[in-house]
């Protein structure tokens, strides 16, 4: 390529780079902009969600935090989320270990089946579970929501944990066995600590998925509502809206913090070689 051609290519590339950077910025505004209206109107001193803004107030947050029904729903969601995330992470850890450690017949098909919830619309999972629970006579309750969320979250847990286990140096386990540890002690003292960041990250992400889920929960919730189902039922009442916005703003903030935490934990020790004090 001639010098002139090369210069032209470079100038196109650098112009492109500025263009892309500008686009990226606009994209972030598009992504986050609409979400800012939730906290904005949650702090607005008016029942109406409209401009012009009337003034600053924290009374909607006080209303949300003293609304017994909303707090009950929040507590239900936390309980469901913790149980579902724990179960999904445990199931995900076993499956991820089997998938990454053993090369067995039918691995692709079995993995595909377990990961199915990622590729089926949630409404299908919701109605299918509703039909089954009804058929075997299990009443809808927080337990049925937990079952649904375990099914929904396990594929997420597996994908987080598989990526963690793939970079795992198996010779560390072999060394432990050679030094006389049994399989359980090897798991407990070698595998577990190395996979720990993946486990924490998986738990946090599963918790968020469960906590935020509405699409499936709507079908399998009984009289005890989770928070998204409660929020949905309140959207019809304009008077309740500012309180819902305040709760929504708090949920968004909490979700962001948890996601950043989960991502940060997941990356611990990923780039450098696993470093254990032998």
């Amino acid at each position: 390529m001639s010098q002139k051609g090369a210069d032209k290519a470079v100038s196109i590339t650098s112009r492109l780079s500025y263009g892309l950077a500008a686009f990226a910025l606009l994209y972030l505004i598009f992504l986050y902009g609409p979400l800012f209206f939730l906290p904005l109107f949650a702090f607005n001193d008016s029942t109406f969600i409209a401009f012009p803004l009337k003034g600053f107030t924290t009374k909607w947050f006080e209303a949300a935090l003293s609304d017994e029904e909303m707090l009950t729903a929040l507590w239900n969601s936390i309980k469901v989320g913790v149980v579902a995330a724990t179960a999904a992470t445990a199931l995900g850890l076993l499956a991820a270990k089997a998938i990454t450690r053993y090369d067995f017949a039918g691995r692709g098909a079995v993995t595909g089946f377990i990961m199915l919830p990622l590729f089926v619309p949630e409404i299908m999972l919701g109605i299918a579970l509703l039909v089954l629970l009804n058929q075997i006579g299990i009443p809808l309750s927080l337990y049925s929501v937990v079952i649904a969320h375990v099914i929904l979250c396990t594929p997420f847990a597996i994908s987080v944990l598989t990526s963690r286990l793939e970079g795992f140096d198996r010779s560390l386990e072999e060394a432990s066995m050679d030094l006389g540890e049994g399989p359980w002690m090897t798991f407990w003292r070698v595998t577990f600590p190395l996979v720990m960041p993946g486990i924490v990250s998986s738990f946090l992400l599963c918790f968020i998925v469960s906590f935020d889920d509405f699409l499936i929960s709507f079908f399998v919730t009984g009289t005890e509502q989770t928070l998204p189902v409660y929020i949905w039922s309140q959207l019809r009442f304009p008077r309740k809206l500012p309180g819902v916005l305040a709760m929504g703003a708090m949920i968004l903030l909490a979700s962001c913090v948890l996601v950043v935490l989960a991502e940060w934990v997941r990356r611990i020790g990923v780039d450098d070689k696993p470093n254990v004090g032998v």
Binding site: L31, P34, L35, L38, I49, I208, W232, G248, S255
Partner: peptide
């Protein structure tokens, strides 16, 4: 981050 945040709230933001 938006991938993990409440879908219901993201959709509701647009109604507002």
């Amino acid at each position: 981050i938006p991938f993990w945040t409440s879908y219901l709230l993201r959709a509701f933001a647009w109604k507002i």
